[in-house]
Amino acid sequence: MRVPVIDRPRIATFLLFGLLALVPVYAGLFDQPFYLTLFARVMIFALAAVSLDLVLGFGGMVSFGHAAYLGVGAYAVGILAYHGVDSVLVRWSVAILASAAVALFIGSVSLRTSGMYFIMITLAFAQMLFYLAVSLKAYGGDDGLPIAQRGAIGPIDLNSSTQLYYLILVLLGLALALAHRIIGSRFGRALEGAKWNERRAVALGIAPYRYRLVAFVISGTICGLAGALLATLTSFVSPSYMAWTRSGEIIVMVVLGGMATLTGPIVGAIVLLVLEEILATITIHWMLILGPVLVLVVLFARRGLWGWIAGARHG
């Protein structure tokens, strides 16, 4: 028997999306288009953070190179646009496929290691892609590559900030729903079981490598979509999208919001980027303030901010 449960995490998630949906209204009312761009960016990073949570929170894989997929997705869009491919669907599809392929390659190599080595090897791959982008002089090298046209998908005109904003919101919602589905499935159980007790999973006949690799590819693919959205939003791509500090930021979003909670990383992305924005206007030493705040949250909120919002027990 299945009774639909309206529980606290679910209500909190719907409230969160409700608030995000109101941002364009607020921005319009108070004539602050800046908020539209800020929160579109926030949601794109939230998408990247949710994707990282799949491998970090549920798979126990500390990928320190997720910015690589952001970069691959963004560059796919940028390079196609540069060569005159105007179809957004083609641009984004290529971005998704390219990031899936890169994640498959990086994952299949990195997952042969674990612990500190895994962290270092994922970082190393991301750095290689960073320097590859710097060396692509034809596509702007260090300076990056502007994108002339955001384009359109059917009736949705991406040059309209509001329409782009809502498209990103819908994609974030879909990705979150998909991630929930995956985590609740047999696949999710095998992945989580192997994270908590690999020895036991192996003794039951579950070979962790293949489940981790598939999770890694799903995660890289979603993160690649985030990269495509980022390139579309900013009409620009540059190697800085793949900087290792970017990978670090995505990890901070997940840990701050709450690992293995899926919605938590969205909260983490909002809090980190909005605080960054506010503190940066007050002082250039904003990291000195943000650092201790992060330490306190990690120390006092066991499952991050989301554990505190939604009650510690549920995801």
Partner: peptide
């Protein structure tokens, strides 16, 4: 249930809720 799903074969089922 994890033991049962392992016995039933691979766990590449992504959609249906295990619970």
């Amino acid at each position: 249930a994890l033991a049962i799903q392992a016995r039933q074969g691979h766990s590449f089922r992504f959609w249906r809720e295990a619970r």
